[in-house]
């Protein structure tokens, strides 16, 4: 299958710079192909930047990176109108947000005000500056990173805003073999623009979206999804169950995942593959549950039967 080949080559291409992270790369790709924004939560130096830049490269999209700091202002991202003396008028200087892939590095370092300006633009696909609405490029992806450990002086994204990200991924340490290979490679972690081959044409990118909407979802699968959702709402381990929007996101990603794997219908394994990244950040454990979000997803997957009785 043509599209499957393109996806595989894209994953392989990213794999040349980010070693041993094929699963995460696939999921990240799935997120972007589902038109969703991605949140990567991990320690520094795990290849978050590399991943986002490489993804933009293989998809052939323009890429910008903004390091979020406490003094970053909304205007620094969105852009400003500046009075131009020569022709005596205001001209708009677009901010870094006017790109196709935006890496918002360490988003929790900036003030809630700046965060919400970005989140609003993410949700609406446009920015409004000084009363004027400007559309963002199409497609528009935000890959935000967050450092979960060093929390001092940060403004963690509120739980309600996490919902704006379709997926949350953790990269984790590479396995020893991949790490060893990394030590030996000539890139040695440095990644240069233009180093990767573009694997998906714009036509393929838009065609992919159409194809995803044609992926068949059977009643049996919807039943399974509903059982999953019902479990999160009923079980006492969950403080907050999966919202209808969350359930929809789950189905959307499962569809994309199925299509990425060259299937015209969704199977339960597709749903399970995207369950952790899609549902993980939307589920909040209740006070008397000891585990974290990941444990919660595992519990969910283990407890709900794939086959209805």
């Amino acid at each position: 299958m043509e599209i499957q080949g393109a996806i595989d080559s894209a994953v392989a291409e990213v794999g040349t710079v980010l070693l041993g992270k094929e699963a995460q790369v696939r999921l990240a790709l799935c997120c972007l192909l589902s038109r969703g924004h991605l949140l990567i939560e991990d320690l520094p130096g795990m290849g978050k930047t590399t991943l986002s830049h490489a993804l933009a490269e293989v998809l052939g999209l323009s890429y910008k990176r903004v390091q979020f700091t406490s003094d970053l202002l909304p205007a620094d991202i969105l852009g400003v109108s500046v009075y131009d003396r020569t022709d005596a008028s205001f001209s708009f200087h677009p901010g870094p947000i006017f790109t196709q892939v935006l890496l918002a590095d360490e988003i929790n370092r900036t003030t809630p005000r700046t965060q919400s300006a970005l989140l609003e633009a993410m949700a609406e696909g446009q920015v409004t500056i000084e009363g004027e609405t400007r559309p963002l490029p199409e497609p528009f992806f935000v890959i935000a990173t967050q450092n979960p450990i060093d929390q001092s002086g940060t403004y963690p994204l509120p739980e309600s805003q996490l919902d704006r990200f379709l997926m949350r991924l953790q990269l984790g340490y590479p396995d020893p073999q991949a790490e060893r290979q990394m030590f030996l490679s000539k890139h040695s972690g440095q990644f240069r623009s233009g180093a990767l081959r573009r694997c998906l044409s714009p036509q393929q990118l838009t065609g992919f979206r159409d194809a995803v909407t044609r992926v068949h979802v059977a009643d049996s699968l919807l039943d399974y999804l509903q059982r999953l959702v019902a479990f999160t709402r009923q079980s006492r381990e969950f403080a907050v169950g999966l919202s209808p929007r969350g359930a929809l996101a789950l189905l959307d990603c499962a569809r994309t995942w199925a299509h990425m794997n060259g299937r015209a219908h969704v199977v339960p394994e597709d749903l399970q593959a995207v369950l952790a990244p899609v549902a993980g950040h939307r589920l909040i454990p209740s006070g008397d549950y000891a585990g974290d979000g990941q444990a919660l997803v595992d519990l969910l997957q283990r407890s709900v039967d794939v086959i209805g009785r």
Partner: peptide
Amino acid sequence: LAFCARLARRGLTRGRGEGPR
């Protein structure tokens, strides 16, 4: 489910969250 029941008699029990594949 009948298929699973037959396999269970051979000691191969499908977990609740285990997909067919």
